[in-house]
Computed example of a mutant assay.
Amino acid sequence: MKVILTQEVSGLGTPGDIIEVKDGYGRNYLLPQGFAIAWSKGAEKQVTVIKRARDAREIRDLGHANEVKAQLEGLKVSLSARAGDGGRLFGSITPAEVVDAVKAAGGPALDRRRLELSGHIKALGAHQVRVRLHPDVTAKFDVNVVRSK
């Protein structure tokens, strides 16, 4: 089955890529989740629009990715959340909340889909977050979750 990716899918490609996948994977996962659209001649024309939008928010090159990495790794990111007596959060910290905290700490604007959390953040303390900035560059930084007052 031929599909056009609308979002970045780890191991498959980036938005606008036309790829061939197994029928069940495309029909049961990629299409219902909105990660891809079925390929057609008309849909292929939309690829240029998707790629143009991706280029606008994409990190320009390897040098720019390394600059953003250096900026992120020197950043102190802190989030406050409600927690119980044992330090366990009521709910969990989402990637969107991490992106907002990075921006509030003076960091660059990130795409939440590029964040790689090591499981859900459900406890107080320091947690390591990875960000795929470029295919060759991954930044790591710590997010400190503190109890809100």
Rank of each mutant, 00 (worst) to 15 (best):
V3G: 12
I4D: 01
Q7K: 14
Q7W: 03
Q7P: 04
E8G: 10
V9M: 04
S10R: 14
G13V: 07
T14P: 01
P15W: 09
G16P: 06
G16Q: 00
D17A: 14
I19T: 10
V21N: 03
V21S: 08
D23H: 07
G24M: 08
Y25H: 10
G26L: 13
Y29N: 03
L31Q: 13
L31T: 13
P32K: 12
P32A: 11
Q33L: 07
Q33G: 05
G34T: 10
F35R: 06
F35H: 14
A36H: 07
A36E: 11
I37M: 15
A38D: 08
W39G: 01
A43C: 04
K45S: 08
K45R: 15
Q46V: 00
T48W: 01
T48N: 08
V49S: 07
I50F: 01
K51F: 05
R52V: 00
R52K: 13
R54Y: 12
D55N: 04
A56W: 02
E58R: 10
R60M: 10
D61F: 06
D61R: 03
D61P: 09
D61Y: 10
H64E: 14
H64P: 04
N66T: 07
K69I: 05
Q71S: 12
Q71V: 04
G74F: 01
L75Q: 02
L75S: 06
K76Y: 07
K76N: 15
K76W: 06
V77W: 12
S80D: 13
A81F: 05
A81W: 04
A81H: 11
R82V: 14
A83R: 00
G86E: 15
G86V: 05
G87C: 11
G87Y: 06
R88W: 02
L89M: 02
F90E: 00
F90Q: 05
G91K: 15
G91Q: 12
S92Y: 08
S92R: 05
I93H: 04
I93V: 15
T94L: 08
T94H: 09
P95E: 02
V99K: 06
V102I: 03
K103M: 09
A105L: 00
A105T: 09
G106M: 14
G107W: 12
G107R: 01
G107P: 05
A109L: 12
D111F: 08
R113I: 12
L115A: 02
E116Y: 15
S118D: 15
S118L: 10
G119L: 00
H120A: 12
I121L: 08
I121M: 03
K122Y: 07
A123P: 03
V131R: 10
R132Y: 00
R132N: 09
R132T: 01
L133N: 02
L133M: 08
P135I: 08
D136P: 06
V137W: 11
A139F: 01
A139Q: 13
F141S: 11
F141K: 14
F141Q: 12
V143K: 13
V143S: 15
V145L: 13
V145P: 01
V146E: 15
V146M: 11
R147N: 09
S148F: 03
K149S: 15
K149T: 14
